Amino acid sequence: MIRPQVPSSLTSNERFLADFHDQRAGVTSQAFMSLRAAKQGEVATSSYDFLAALVPKENSPLTVLDVACGDGYLLWLVASSRQRPATLMGVDISQGELTAARRRLGQSATLIQGRAQALPLPEGSADFVLCHMALMLMDDLDSVITEVRRVLRSGGVFSFIVGAKPPPSAALDLYLHRLRVARQRLNSTIPRFGDPRLSDPEQIQQLLTSRFDDVLVEEVSISRRYSPSEIWSWFEGMYDLHGIPAHEQALMKQDYIAALSPLCEEDGCLEFTDNLRQVRAIATSPQTFCPST
């Protein structure tokens, strides 16, 4: 059962995100679940695996909350690696994503339609709070962090992955140029998402240190070897093209593939890398927790 907890009104950004994911449920996991990820010499099948690996595999009972759980792929990874079932919970504002999560997870997880700024869980009820490629999209980040700390038990783990500044890339540069030209011509925009503090490791530390101990920020690289058409398909899963008419997107795709093809190697593909950032922090004890004012 999916328990609806959505407030009567969402922000304009939240309405955009809910509508997008209702129409394209599973788009985030599809984009990232097969992209090889690396950090500190460690290689994983995807960036999701770095989050799932934090949850111990032994038999101790645990409660794991995935904030902005999407179609449930991260919760499924956690469940698949455990010797004993964990108590799994997922919160998302998109009904479409939660429906997809229920198909993936069956009755093994409690799925709740709600906002991260008002998590519908009791205080100190979770051992792990995880979030993959969503925190940087959320309004009122301070309220989100406060809520995460509230639902975590002392000593519990909060870990999230967000985007970081990408390295120089012809694949990205050619795409962004065409996107800017199209948006200027169409006078089209998309919402500005999130809090800029998440783009800077020092500010991430400052954001978390009043509520968490042992804040660790690690750089993660993701890579794929794709043909130009496959790269374009990957970009189609992002928010940038939302609102651009289908016929304009078709023209952009044709132009993009033509521009990128001469840069490919003999197999018709090229390496396309990107950067993410994983943050892990430990919830402070009540004696040391100092809520920000």
Rank of each mutant, 00 (worst) to 15 (best):
V64S: 02
P228M: 12
T28W: 03
V220N: 04
L241G: 03
L260I: 15
P286D: 03
L179M: 11
P56L: 07
R211K: 10
A118H: 08
T273P: 00
N275G: 10
M136E: 09
V129I: 11
Q287P: 00
T209C: 13
R185S: 05
V144L: 12
F32A: 04
L152Y: 04
L152V: 08
M89D: 00
Y73L: 13
T284L: 15
R225E: 13
I244V: 14
T11Y: 06
A31G: 12
A31Q: 05
D22P: 09
L121F: 14
G194C: 10
A31L: 15
S169P: 00
G163A: 13
D195H: 04
R178Y: 02
R224P: 00
P167W: 08
R280C: 09
D240F: 15
Q40N: 12
R192K: 11
L263A: 01
S47Q: 14
V162H: 02
P56H: 04
A101N: 00
Q249W: 03
T110E: 04
D139A: 15
L130P: 02
R150V: 10
R3Y: 10
P245N: 07
C269E: 03
I244T: 02
I244G: 02
R82A: 13
A38Q: 10
G268H: 00
P168A: 12
V91D: 01
D240N: 11
R192H: 11
S12I: 12
S229V: 15
A38R: 09
P201W: 14
A182F: 07
R149V: 03
V27R: 07
L207I: 08
S169R: 04
L35Y: 00
S34T: 15
G237I: 01
F20M: 09
R84F: 07
P201Q: 06
E202T: 08
P120I: 14
Q249L: 15
A281E: 06
L172N: 04
